[in-house]
């Protein structure tokens, strides 16, 4: 965010503002995080390490990374295409399309899982055909990927659309009039302009993809070491009363989130410096 030259109030005003904001953040966000960390290291660092390098935990980590590696690029390409169409052009149905892009935000994660069961489950539209061909979608990797794609669908687009709308298309038009091709214009003019927003969108999409629980839980089948993603593995451990191990894996996810968020801050700082 831009630093604002004009700041609020005097010393007391600022103090009150800081106190209020820090109290809110501390109570609502930092405390739950501290709970996770405290429980994770309740048995010491060695136990934490053992918990996150356990074979099932490792396979959950790999699965989560794999799913993310598929989901994030797909949704990024979509996000850029959608932003290009929606931000750079005025057409009929534009605001409907904008709402449809937001749609997955409004869908309960549970429902996001359910719809893929309705499509690909044994009694779903494609269920009979899939089982005839011995294909598995739900309760296997494809289902997990689909549910994650759905849930993280809007993140990149949502980040880019306002940015690109604000930027307008004068620069692109200038490049085109100078004889650049469409793709050249996109690569040399648009991409550099949106790169920080794009990266922020990717980072959020990535964080959400790794952490998705509700939707994946419905389509996963919870097969230990096979279709348990890291968030599901946390639940499995919790249900096995291995609370410390559960929180250890959760802390890993929080750690990923924090690394992601620190990256984001760096991205923003760089973005601000570039803009200056």
């Amino acid at each position: 965010m831009k630093e604002h030259p004009k700041q609020t109030g005097g010393f007391w005003g600022n103090l009150a503002l800081c106190a209020a904001a820090l109290a809110i953040m501390g109570l609502l966000i930092v405390l739950p995080l501290l709970v996770v960390l405290k429980e994770a290291f309740a048995g010491g660092v060695r136990l934490w390490l053992a918990s996150v390098t356990d074979q099932d935990a490792l396979s959950a980590i790999w699965l989560t990374l794999g799913v993310t590696a598929v989901v994030v690029p797909l949704n990024t390409v979509f996000g850029v295409a959608a932003a290009w169409a929606i931000a750079k052009f005025r057409f009929k149905g534009r605001s409907l399309l904008l709402s449809l892009v937001d749609l997955p935000f409004a869908v309960s994660p549970v429902v996001a899982g359910l719809i893929f069961i309705l499509l690909f489950g044994r009694h779903g539209w494609l269920g009979t055909w899939l089982s005839e061909h011995h294909l598995r979608v739900v309760f296997a990797l494809p289902g997990i990927i689909l549910a994650t794609l759905f849930v993280t669908f809007p993140f990149v687009a949502r980040e880019l659309i306002p940015l690109m709308t604000e930027q307008g298309s004068e620069e692109e038009q200038a490049a085109l009039s100078l004889g650049a091709t469409g793709w050249q214009t996109f690569a040399k003019v648009t991409l550099p302009n949106i790169k920080w927003g794009l990266l922020y969108g990717i980072i959020l999409c990535n964080a959400r993809a790794m952490g998705e629980f509700g939707a994946v839980s419905v389509v996963s089948g919870h097969i230990r070491g096979e279709t348990s993603t890291l968030p599901l593995h946390v639940e499995v451990l919790y249900n096995e009363y291995s609370f410390t191990a559960a929180f250890a894996c959760a802390s890993l996810l929080s750690g990923l989130a924090i690394v992601t968020l620190v990256l984001k801050t760096i991205v923003e700082l760089k973005g601000a410096r570039d803009a200056a």
Binding site: I117, F120, G121, R122, H123, G124, G127, L130, S131, R136, V138, F139, G221, H222, I223, R224, G225, E226, V236, N239
Partner: peptide, 20 residues
């Protein structure tokens, strides 16, 4: 042997829906 655990009804539903 691979294991899948969960609430009994939920597990039955998963099998009905195609968990092998």
């Amino acid at each position: 042997v691979k294991q899948s655990h969960g609430g009994s009804g939920k597990q039955a539903r998963a099998v009905i829906d195609g968990l092998d």
